[in-house]
Design a protein around this nucleic acid. Structure first.
Lengths: 150, 150
DNA sequence: CTTCTGAGTTCCTTCAAGAGACTTCAAGAC
DNA sequence: GTCTTGAAGTCTCTTGAAGGAACTCAGAAG
C-alpha cells in the first residue's frame, strides 16, 4: 500500500509502481499469467484477503493491465492479461531471475522456464534493444530525457 | 496495516518482493544508483518520511542490497549498491522500459539510457540466456522446478 | 423452494505510512 | 571553552490500509 501517489513523479519507475507497486499486485499478475483467472482461485492460491483482492483487481482493470470478462452466462467473471499486462510479465520474469539467483538457496528455483525457440530450460538476460549486447547497470549512462521535470 | 510476509512462499517473485517490494524501496535504489547516496539527499529528492526512509535503508542493508559505509571521519554514512543490489537495477531498467512505453505520454521518457557498447540511446530487451532469441511471456512454458513446494 | 457456488461486500481490529518536531554527535567558528 | 551548523537519525501523533471473518446476492441444480 503506498499512501503517497507516485504517478505525478517524472519517473517511469514511480509511474510503474503506481500501477503494479501495491502489495500483492505482482503476485496477482503471476497467477493470472499461469492460469488462475478467477476470483476464488486467486484468493485461495495466494491466501489474500478478499477485500484487498477486490481492490487490486479493480485497480488493475482500471489501469488496463487486466480485462474482466464474463463467462458461463451468470454473474461470474474471469480476468485475463491485456497486451499492456502481458508486457508486464517481463518484469515478473526479471524478478524471478534475480530471486532464483540470490534467494532460492539449496532447494533451487521453484519454477523453470522452457524457451520455445531453443527448447532449453533458461532464464532471461537483458540486452540492448539496439545492438544486442548485454545491458546492465554498469553498461549505460543515464541522461535527462524529453519528459524530465527539469 | 499488517503486511503479509511473502518470504516463505515458494516463489521467487514473492521472495524478491520481500526484499524490495515495500513502498519506496525501488525508488530508493534508483536514487542510490544515480548517485544520491546520503540520507539527506534521498529524503529531499523523494520527499519520503524520515522514519520510513530509516526503516527502508535498514531493511535494504540487512538484505545485503545496500552497504552502509562511513565517510568524512564523522558520524556520517553513505549507502552504496552491493553486487546483489546492482543486479536489482536490471529490474529497475525493465520497469523504466514498461513505464516509458505505456505511461510516459506526450512528454516522452523522463530519462534516457546511452549504451556504452554501441553509444546509442536505447532500452533493454529480454533475451534467452541460452540462445539469445527474444524471451517474453508467450515464448516460454512454465514448469515446476526443484524448489517447488508440491 | 431450498441448497450450492462464485464473486464479491461489510465491519472491526491492528499496525504501517505521513508529517514534522526533537535529539545526538562531531567539526569548525568565535 | 562555548556556540553554531549540519548530517543522520529518533519520537510522537494521526490517518488509513491490510487482515480476517462473517454476510449478501444472483443464478443453477436438485
Amino acid at each position: 500500500m503506498q499512501r503517497t501517489n507516485f504517478s505525478e513523479m517524472a519517473c517511469s519507475i514511480a509511474r510503474t509502481l503506481d500501477v503494479v507497486g501495491e502489495p500483492w499486485s505482482p503476485l496477482i499478475l503471476r497467477d493470472v499469467y499461469v492460469g488462475f483467472s478467477r476470483f476464488e482461485q486467486i484468493q485461495a492460491d495466494l491466501g489474500i484477503s478478499r477485500k484487498v483482492l477486490t481492490e487490486r483487481l479493480n485497480h488493475l482493470v482500471e489501469q488496463g493491465v487486466l480485462d474482466r470478462r464474463p463467462y458461463d452466462h451468470r454473474p461470474r467473471y474471469e480476468y485475463v492479461l491485456t497486451e499492456k499486462g502481458t508486457e508486464l510479465v517481463d518484469l515478473l520474469m526479471v524478478m524471478v531471475g534475480w530471486g532464483d539467483r540470490w534467494l532460492a538457496g539449496e532447494a533451487g528455483p521453484p519454477v523453470l522456464y522452457r524457451h520455445h525457440a531453443c527448447g532449453e530450460i533458461s532464464s532471461v538476460d537483458l540486452r540492448c534493444a539496439h545492438c544486442g549486447e548485454p545491458m546492465h547497470a554498469a553498461d549505460v549512462d543515464v541522461l535527462a530525457g524529453p519528459g524530465s521535470a527539469a
